[in-house]
Design a protein around this nucleic acid. Structure first.
Lengths: 340, 340
DNA sequence: AATATTATTGCAATCGGTTGCAGTAATTTT
DNA sequence: AAAATTACTGCAACCGATTGCAATAATATT
């Protein structure tokens, strides 16, 4: 292990104090231009790297932002992260990213890790079934800002960035109705999660607006895993005497998988059953037919989240003011729903 | 901002020294059992949290491992990460994950960030076009272990965990040959990257073994973006007088997209053109027909990487000994290639 | 030329744990 | 009962950067 170069080494070599070196490196206005130059030059020459631990310890600030998301493996999530990272990096902050794998237990663990790592702020999209939020109390007590996106909760006093899931659900359903669907199923996740609840309510509202009675029978919630989608389609939908003629699935993977299973069972899409998904993941483009879906502005969402947070941290904005930001989403019509 | 509780607070309340508190919390054998109990109880009661910065500063060890991957949005990558995280967490280490977005420039930045954050070790899968590896010199000079997986390089003295891409490429191609394909295209990435190079060589070997001449004309490399795949298929493949009857694509997204474009152009898969992908991503299951692919043991790869690393860090293994670990992969035959 | 102002720099304490070494008390050995 | 071990505990230095305050040098003002 080679020895580290510290500001003391620089100071000694330049015959000045460590104080001056420290200030010089931070571009402190009181330090002479020439001195600064000498410091920077030597620092570069020796490959000096500031020791963050010493700095953080002293400053009681880490310049690190924690992110907890359910999973990383979707186009949507990686777009969000990409947006967050861009903004946050430009502002000179670091990111620690972790996944809850959709489990409350893991989310709690991650939150604790973040807390121990003294993140300056936390960005969260909740796991599938988190219902107890006590793991965020640490942060709230210490007044460390938390900002939620997409999967949010109203139980905590925190800023939220979301799309209008109600409207998206409404649009998706209305589109199916306009394609002449009479019996529209909806497969979605746990209704305690805002995104699913809101989409569901949009679905109900669209039905109601067109006087189509809602039927419990056409509504399925599960954990959206491959297995559960399989079960829902083969053991439930395909076993019916009266098959539905429309399906609104709450994500594109589910829609794509259902589409495949329908075709395997000999159904025609969209003639026999029209399908709308959600997210505009790449997968929705390569099925046959391609899947009508809701485009979700991941990048924009990420950038918004990060920008609000940075403004707050830099003292230029106030999180408590902007309490909910709603972004636009849009229906993208493709073959899976176009009965023409 | 509430004040932090430190070992000094605990020490004062218990009328013992901070030294004893520190040792007690670390379960140091020299500390009396009762004293330890008192310390732990009070720590718990007051919600004490160790300050990592102070600790890291003193110990010169962070218990943090950095991970740099090209992208997070594939099933393969998230499986790998999941595997890494599991092992690493159990060993009491933290993870910092970052994406290079397939760009050398970003990879360099990420590496520097990791270095400044004083990670104890680095796990890397190279970006698409990294060819200069000087950003890893910092680590090598300081003897911070680096371990590569999947996208690796022979230019650096580091342990690597990979699959046998040569064999996988060979198997994929041989499978197409056995389906009676005579004119097999191969679309892949930059040949400076080991994974693509090895698959390509497997492809060539399979052709050679069956006396099929290799034709430059049937071989395309590009950056594997949606746009480039589109270009390759529509402006190149579909413009030919003599269409190929087999396609071996280096990932499932490309295979799925090509499949869709072929069908749009009126070709039948697999009758007119048989397709084999790579990775066994979810997308390969939902196309029509489903795509024959190579199953890549992501989880296993992640666990292996992490385990080797942890053993090394804990002083029980030596990275320089195990220099390359090769995992098994397997061909999964589906409809896209089965001419029967 | 004496005084005030501004520009630079450095001293020393501080952030919160960790650890080598020494010290004291308790227990064992001879 | 004296000597040797063993069991605990604490002192004080240290990790490397930051910062309030004081000090000195340089320049401006009257």
């Amino acid at each position: 292990m080679k020895k580290e170069i510290t500001i003391y080494d620089l100071a000694e070599k330049l015959n000045i104090s460590a104080t001056t070196v420290s200030r010089g490196l931070q571009n402190h206005p009181a330090i002479n231009k020439n001195t600064k130059k000498k410091i920077f030059d030597l620092a570069k020459e020796l490959g000096y790297q500031s020791n963050k631990f010493a700095s953080n310890l002293r400053k009681q600030k880490t310049h690190t932002i924690g992110v907890i998301v359910p999973r990383l493996n979707s186009l949507f999530m990686s777009s969000v992260l990409s947006g967050i990272e861009k903004v946050v990096n430009n502002a000179g902050y670091n990111l620690i990213i972790s996944q809850s794998f959709e489990q409350e237990e893991k989310e709690k663990k991650n939150a604790l890790t973040m807390f121990n790592n003294r993140v300056d702020a936390l960005i969260v999209s909740l796991s599938y079934d988190s219902s107890d939020f006590s793991h965020f109390n640490n942060f709230i007590n210490k007044e460390i800002p938390i900002i939620f996106f997409d999967r949010v909760t109203d139980s905590l006093p925190a800023t939220k960035v979301v799309i209008d899931n109600f409207k998206a659900g409404y649009d998706a359903t209305m589109h199916l109705i306009e394609q002449n669907c009479k019996s529209i199923m909806h497969i979605t996740g746990n209704l305690t999660r805002n995104v699913y609840k809101d989409r569901y309510e949009g679905y109900r509202k669209a039905l109601a607006d067109r006087n189509i009675p809602f039927s419990e029978d056409l509504f399925i919630t599960n954990d959206l895993s491959e297995q559960e989608i399989y079960n829902a389609v083969t053991h439930n939908i395909l076993k019916r005497k009266q098959l539905p003629d429309g399906l609104f699935a709450t994500n594109d993977s589910a829609a794509a998988y259902a589409l495949m299973l329908f075709k395997e069972a000999g159904l025609r899409v969209p003639e026999d059953i029209a399908i709308v998904g959600f997210n505009n993941d790449f997968i929705s483009k390569v099925t046959e037919p391609a899947i009508t879906t809701i485009n979700y502005p991941g990048n924009e969402m990420g950038e918004n989240v990060a920008r609000i947070l940075i403004n707050h941290l830099d003292g230029e904005g106030d999180l408590s003011v902007t309490s909910t930001v709603i972004l636009n989403s849009e229906l993208i019509v493709r073959g899976s729903s176009l009965k023409k």
